[in-house]
Design a protein around this nucleic acid. Structure first.
Lengths: 126, 126
DNA sequence: CGGTATCCAAGCGGATACTG
DNA sequence: CAGTATCCGCTTGGATACCG
């Protein structure tokens, strides 16, 4: 198990929430699970740009932090489902607002951020 | 100037907003500027855990992204003030909600995240 | 006071191969 | 299908010293 070399301190609220949803794919995972995309393979399909490893790690962290629960069905082939906890659902107003904000200003920032490109469709995302 | 080796793609709204407020101190900066902490030295005092370099870089990025404006007063000693743009103010519902969420669940997560420690007061933060 | 330059540690996460 | 282990490169940001 990996142990941080630099201990973290949590003083203001932003320290906490950045630990909870700061991971690259966490807000996306939360929103997808809320939309009933519950199984790892479905999540993977929904966010093809994330590696399986990244997904597993972030799902584990979300579970450890009490944001989601993990249900393992003892069947073959294995079946796992994640669901939001009550606390996890409290995050939805934030994660959804983030997604909405980004979509609203998407056009404006796409050019700014990507330099000059115009369009280019790649893997789909929620 | 540093140039990314890995180009980024912005497909969903979360990609965009994470680029805008993903920096470690950005939500904090936005909230502080909104609270009329406008000058670099005041911001630095308000968030003693951030290095001057980190602050400068993130302020520059926020400015480049059109979230804040920078006003340089031609006086001695130099005086600089940052202010939120209209778009920047649209972020407030999100950044403030993040801070509130974290504060609300602070106690619950502090123990979980810090391992077992209880209290320890360090630098103050908003 | 405000900003820059250099150097470098540590983290985050991708690629790949493997298990049950 | 779901998860783990190893390796390794990119990026972030801290420390420090210095300029206008």
């Amino acid at each position: 198990m990996y142990e941080r070399k630099i201990k973290r301190t949590y003083i203001c609220g932003l320290d906490i929430i950045s630990e909870i949803i700061g991971g690259k794919w966490k807000p996306c995972l939360i929103n997808l699970i809320h939309k009933n995309v519950l199984r790892p393979s479905d999540l993977q399909r929904a966010m093809p740009r994330a590696s399986r490893r990244a997904l597993t790690i972030q799902l584990n962290e979300l579970e450890a932090h009490g944001i989601i629960t993990k249900t393992i069905y003892p069947v073959l082939p294995p079946k796992v489902e994640y669901r939001l906890t009550e606390i996890g659902e409290c995050l939805l107003p934030i994660t959804i607002a983030m997604d909405n904000w980004g979509n609203e200003y998407m056009d404006q920032f796409k050019h700014l951020l990507e330099g000059k490109e115009t369009e280019q469709d790649e893997g789909a995302n929620p």
